[in-house]
Simulated scan of single mutants.
Amino acid sequence: MDDITIKITDRHGTKHDVVAPTDMAMNLMEVVRSYELAPEGTIGVCGGMAMCASCQCYVISNTEIPEMSDDEEAMLSEAFDVKANSRLGCQIRITSQLNGLEVELAPEC
């Protein structure tokens, strides 16, 4: 399977079903940017280095995602609007196991 479907709720509450390729080494933040689900300059500000939390999202589904790295955990400990289900989109690699993932973008900082 080369493509998966992800449900993304943008910062205005609009739900989007998007198709994401699994063969391009993309992460969730890059998928959000490619579909223009957040204004330019408001997501992925650090370029996906887990240094800004502009791509923070809330994982809604029970989809199993990789464990959080120490860098991601440290960044989220300093971010705003953090919840128990918060993750950085730049740290979630698009793989076939994520098919059906449902996330909501955190408010803009």
Rank of each mutant, 00 (worst) to 15 (best):
T42H: 07
V32E: 09
S96M: 01
Q91F: 06
D70G: 09
P107D: 09
V18T: 03
S61C: 08
V19T: 11
E30Y: 11
I6G: 06
L105V: 07
N85T: 15
E67G: 15
M75Y: 04
N27E: 08
E36N: 15
A53W: 00
C109P: 13
S86P: 03
A84I: 14
Q56K: 15
K83M: 10
D71A: 10
I6V: 13
E64N: 14
T22P: 08
P21E: 05
E40D: 11
L28C: 08
E40R: 14
L28R: 03
V18N: 02
R93M: 14
A79V: 06
S61E: 05
V19G: 00
G100W: 04
G48S: 10
P39Q: 09
H16W: 10
E67T: 14
Y58M: 02
T22V: 15
G48R: 09
S54P: 06
E78N: 08
Q97V: 05
P39W: 08
S86R: 01
L76W: 00
I8P: 10
S34M: 15
L88D: 04
E72N: 02
K7P: 02
V82D: 12
Y58T: 02
V19Y: 00
S86V: 00
C57R: 00
A74R: 14
I6T: 07
I94E: 00
S77N: 13
G44I: 00
C46Y: 01
A50T: 04
